[in-house]
């Protein structure tokens, strides 16, 4: 896509804004529509847009596949680890009251933040990993022939 000057410039501008929006959706999910699932998808879209316009090899330099594959597992570990940690503190699995015994609703806030983060990391990782898997195979058609 070397000839699409406007696309290239606009993508460079948009990528940062998309990531910022993803973080807003992630951490503002308690107050407005949003949460880990949506934020993960939007974060993945930032990388996918970059990959679509500049080529998958360029985005792999920024966000290397080995790191993405670690993220896929890390999210589930963060989620399950939150549950294990609350068990360690003497409460039930995923009982967020454990994180602030004196003020249960604060504990809930912390717990929700942690598990949403886990969800977001896994969804980002899976979506980007799947995109890499599809885009890295040799296509049966040239870019110009679509």
């Amino acid at each position: 896509m070397h000839h699409h000057l406007i696309l290239r410039v606009v993508t460079k501008l948009l990528c940062g804004a998309i990531m910022l929006f993803a973080f807003y959706v992630q951490f503002h999910g308690d107050f407005s529509p949003g949460g880990g699932f949506q934020a993960g998808v939007i974060m993945a879209v930032a990388f996918i847009v970059y990959g679509v316009v500049f080529g998958v090899n360029q985005v792999k330099l920024v966000f290397p596949p080995w790191f993405v594959h670690k993220l896929v597992a890390l999210g589930v570990l963060v989620y399950a680890g939150t549950g294990i940690f609350s068990m360690y503190l003497g409460y039930g699995f995923l009982d967020y009251g454990a994180f602030d015994p004196g003020h249960p609703s604060h504990g809930q806030h912390n717990g929700i933040l942690a598990v949403e983060l886990g969800v977001g990391i896994t969804v980002t990782g899976v979506m980007v990993a799947v995109y890499y898997a599809f885009a890295s195979r040799p296509p049966t058609i040239n870019d110009e022939d679509w």
Partner: peptide, 8 residues
């Protein structure tokens, strides 16, 4: 909400 993401 969860079904959509599992769906994709």
């Amino acid at each position: 909400l969860t079904a959509i993401v599992v769906g994709i």
